[in-house]
Computed example of a mutant assay.
Amino acid sequence: MHGAYHGEYKVPGGKLVVVDLDTEDGVLRGVRVAGDFFLEPDEAILEIDRALEGAPVDTDAAGLAARIDAALPPGTQMFGLTSEGVGIAIRRALAHATDWTDYDWQLIHEPPQSPALHMALDEVLTAEVAAGHRPPTLRVWEWGAPAVVIGSFQSLRNEVDPAAAERHGIQVVRRISGGGAMFIEPGNTITYSLSVPDGLVQGLSFADSYAYLDDWVLGALGDMGIKAWYQPLNDIATDAGKIAGAAQKRMVGSAGGGGAVLHHVTMAYDIDADRMTEVLRIGREKLSDKGTKSAKKRVDPLRRQTGLAREAVIERMIASFRGRYGLAEGSLTEDELTRAKELAETKFGTAEWTARVP
Rank of each mutant, 00 (worst) to 15 (best):
100 W>T: 09
100 W>A: 07
101 T>C: 12
101 T>H: 12
102 D>R: 06
102 D>Y: 13
102 D>E: 13
102 D>A: 15
102 D>I: 10
103 Y>C: 04
103 Y>T: 10
104 D>Q: 15
104 D>P: 01
104 D>Y: 06
105 W>P: 04
105 W>Y: 11
106 Q>H: 09
106 Q>L: 08
106 Q>W: 02
107 L>F: 05
108 I>L: 15
108 I>T: 14
108 I>V: 15
109 H>I: 01
109 H>E: 10
109 H>M: 09
109 H>W: 13
110 E>F: 03
110 E>S: 13
110 E>K: 08
110 E>L: 09
110 E>C: 06
111 P>E: 14
111 P>K: 14
112 P>K: 11
113 Q>V: 13
113 Q>G: 12
114 S>M: 11
114 S>I: 00
114 S>T: 15
115 P>F: 03
115 P>Y: 11
115 P>D: 14
115 P>G: 14
117 L>A: 03
118 H>P: 00
118 H>E: 12
118 H>C: 07
118 H>Y: 05
119 M>D: 07
119 M>H: 12
119 M>S: 10
119 M>V: 11
120 A>V: 06
120 A>T: 09
120 A>L: 14
121 L>E: 01
122 D>F: 01
123 E>K: 13
123 E>G: 04
124 V>K: 00
125 L>E: 08
125 L>T: 07
125 L>H: 01
125 L>V: 14
125 L>K: 05
126 T>V: 11
126 T>Q: 00
126 T>Y: 04
127 A>W: 00
127 A>M: 11
128 E>G: 11
128 E>T: 10
128 E>N: 12
128 E>A: 15
128 E>W: 04
129 V>L: 10
129 V>F: 06
130 A>H: 04
131 A>I: 09
131 A>F: 09
131 A>R: 14
131 A>Q: 08
132 G>S: 08
132 G>R: 14
132 G>V: 11
132 G>T: 08
133 H>D: 12
133 H>F: 05
133 H>Y: 06
133 H>I: 04
134 R>D: 02
134 R>S: 10
134 R>K: 07
135 P>I: 06
135 P>Q: 09
135 P>V: 07
135 P>M: 12
136 P>W: 02
136 P>D: 05
137 T>F: 01
137 T>W: 05
137 T>N: 06
138 L>E: 01
138 L>K: 00
139 R>A: 10
139 R>I: 09
139 R>Y: 07
139 R>S: 06
141 W>F: 13
141 W>V: 13
142 E>L: 02
143 W>P: 06
143 W>H: 11
143 W>Q: 03
143 W>T: 00
143 W>E: 00
143 W>S: 05
144 G>V: 08
144 G>Y: 09
144 G>H: 06
144 G>Q: 10
144 G>R: 07
145 A>L: 04
145 A>D: 03
145 A>T: 01
146 P>K: 05
148 V>I: 12
148 V>F: 04
148 V>P: 03
